[in-house]
Amino acid sequence: MLYIKCPYCGLRAQKEFSYGGDATVKRPNINEEVSSEDWDNFVYMRKSPRGKHIELWQHIAGCRQWIKVQRDTATHEIFQTAKVTEEIR
């Protein structure tokens, strides 16, 4: 079971979180024209890297904040966590 550092609450067990997918995906702006290709990429296309991956988790049984987690998909090592408004490099 992973041990995830919520930037608001501190280290908490994975049980308290739910997974939210790739955090680097950006939704096309509302009320703006978007090409079918861009839209399809946003809705369907995801990378499945082996190694470092920046992903979203929600602290669902805690502060209910969505957070960013940089995790190694092969080893589960977590390098960094951040608020969604912050950048992970």
Binding site: G20, R27, I30, L56, Q58, R64, W66, V84, T85
Partner: peptide
């Protein structure tokens, strides 16, 4: 609820 929180916190803060 999670869906609404997602859009408020991430997409349209």
């Amino acid at each position: 609820l999670s869906h609404l929180e997602y859009y408020l916190q991430i997409v349209w803060p």
